[in-house]
Amino acid sequence: MTPLVVGITVFVLAAFVGFEVISKVPPTLHTPLMSGANAISGITIIGALAAAGLGATPLARILGFLAVVTATINVVGGFMVTDRMLEMFKSRGDRGGRSK
C-alpha cells in the first residue's frame, strides 16, 4: 500500500472510532468534551516541532516557531482549561463538604 492509501485508511477508521466514541456523550459534558477534543487537535504540534527543529531557511524556522507557539497554546491551554472545568463537575454525593 502506498503511504496515501495507508493514510486514507487510518483517517476513515479513526473518524468512525470518533463517531462511535462521542455520539452518546450527555449534554452536561459537551463543553469539556469540545475543549478536550480541541486540545487533541493540537497534535499538529509534532509537525510543528519537526518544522521548527529541522527548518533549513530562516523563513521556514520562523513559520515553524510560530507553529510551535500556536500549537502549544492550543495543547497546554486546552487540556488545562478542560481540567479546570471538570474539577467543578460534582455529583450530589461529592457536595457534602460545602459550608451552608
Binding site: V10, F11, I40, I46, G47
Partner: peptide, 18 residues
C-alpha cells in the same frame, strides 16, 4: 497527510468527528 504522520491523521480525524 502532508508530513505522512499517523498520529496527526488519527488525532485530527477524532476531533473532526467529534
Amino acid at each position: 497527510f502532508v508530513i505522512e504522520s499517523n498520529p496527526l491523521i488519527i488525532g485530527g480525524a477524532l476531533v473532526g468527528a467529534a
